[in-house]
Design a protein around this nucleic acid. Structure first.
Lengths: 256, 256
DNA sequence: CGCAATCTTGAACACCCTCAAGCATGGTGG
DNA sequence: CCACCATGCTTGAGGGTGTTCAAGATTGCG
């Protein structure tokens, strides 16, 4: 257990305009001259140590956040006391939007590694959105995307096997890396096996076994937290094909 | 299979102001004099026959919708071709918001029974939201709630047993009925067993068996699509308690 | 009334989980 | 520096929850 007060402002923080993520993040939606107004309200580049909380579930909702560097996971605690990992957020991605509804964060957010995170007070963002139609539209789209993402997770959890869930996670991570012009085939996982298992609704042991299976099929190479996707197209096929059980295929041949 | 073109405008449609759902729906967020502006853009009370589609997945996103009477299910088709039911919508509830992101509906929506549904062109709603801060805030909250709802479904699917999933659905329906001043203990299910099973990530057979189990425990009474909750508090307890496996409880007693 | 769709019931099996132990890894302190 | 322990990851064996397959009961609609 670590103390969670290891958060500090970053003296090197620059403007949104100069930020390398400006083509992924809010600046996308804001024209040049208005960007300074966003700049004025963003608390830029706070550093969070690995394991420290960005916000806690049920804490009063004040801001949404964007990962500048590092990685974040969000998770929800049930009444029963068990935790469910809801998502992972990489640089350029916004989180904390599910707290708008009743004024309290519906989940908690935690840095998976040492991370720089920008904080945007939601009241200011709302005010700006009123005046900048593009920004309003962009926020609606962001939230809509979040809905869609959560829906796809439900789909994954109820319709896919353990192998497919892992493959799906890897492919998602791959394309998110590609958006940042990073290698889509080689990357390192910011999260533990436990986080992966929890996120995908599996046991840690199952994750371990599936990774071995995928390796022996020469689809991926995994070494600790380093992942290499050896055949992306084959991985994609695995998600499209009806996943026919190998045994019942034989049974079918017995038919008259 | 039914044809899906059985949709017709309702001559009896009245204004939002006079609508019985105005304390659940958008009018909540709009002051009296501005309400007429909403009225002007709402296509009110179109009737949809049971089984007809309100919109199809991947169709261009134009509007969001509110159930006036009846019930709607939304579902998503995977690349592989299997369907996942994502949600059920009752009178006063809005759906179709996950299409904002990329301009196409991420799911399809279908009337579960003969339903009256109001359609609100999103462009107009956006325009109104710019001018009415309360409305903008309300839309953000609606979308945030939708995110939260999808997250809770993920939680349910990965952390709860079949029995708990059914109980959770019943309790959710119960409280949504209560909001409309309907009986929280006696109501009828608008969806089939198949829809329930799909929504909860179970097989139809399992739903059937669980319903029997809950009946023999005198927690609910089910007759076809009619449900009576006999002991709401006991049902709630079932979701809070750690669901101890009955056998291992005995094992624990063997300890020195 | 009769057929089709929906729902229930039963038996066998599969997938994944649980439990338990062994194996790396890394940080800490003697 | 290495022993030490904590933590995280892997591997193996066995069992449970829910699925699949198959058949029968019920409902509902033309």
């Amino acid at each position: 257990m670590k103390l969670t007060s290891n958060r500090s402002p970053n003296p090197l923080s620059s403007s949104c305009e100069q930020c390398g993520l400006s083509n992924l993040c809010l600046p996308l939606a804001i024209a040049g001259e208005d960007l300074s107004r966003l700049d004025a309200v963003v608390k830029r580049d706070s550093m969070y140590a690995r394991g420290s909380k960005v916000f806690a579930q049920n804490a009063p909702f004040t801001s949404c956040f964007v990962v500048k560097s590092g990685a974040v996971k969000t998770s929800m605690m049930s009444e029963r006391g068990d935790e469910k990992v809801l998502g992972f957020y990489l640089p350029g991605e916004m989180f904390g939007l599910d707290g708008v509804n009743d004024g309290a964060y519906a989940c908690s957010a935690e840095a998976l590694e040492r991370s720089a995170i920008c904080e945007i007070p939601f009241e200011h963002l709302e005010q700006l959105a009123r005046e900048l139609p593009h920004l309003q539209r962009y926020l609606f789209r962001l939230m809509s995307r979040e809905i869609h993402g959560a829906e796809e997770l439900s789909m994954l959890l109820s319709k896919n096997t353990a192998d497919e869930r892992i493959v799906s996670l890897f492919l998602t991570l791959s394309s998110r890396h590609a958006r940042r012009r990073l290698s889509p085939t080689r990357f390192s996982l910011p999260m533990s096996r436990g986080d992966i298992a929890n996120f995908l609704g599996l046991a840690v042991e199952t994750v371990s076994r599936v990774l071995n299976r995928l390796q022996s099929q020469h689809l991926v190479k995994v070494n600790g937290r380093t992942v290499e996707l050896l055949d992306i197209e084959a991985l994609q096929r695995q998600l499209q094909q009806p996943a026919e059980p190998c045994i019942s295929a034989i049974k079918l041949m017995d038919r008259p």
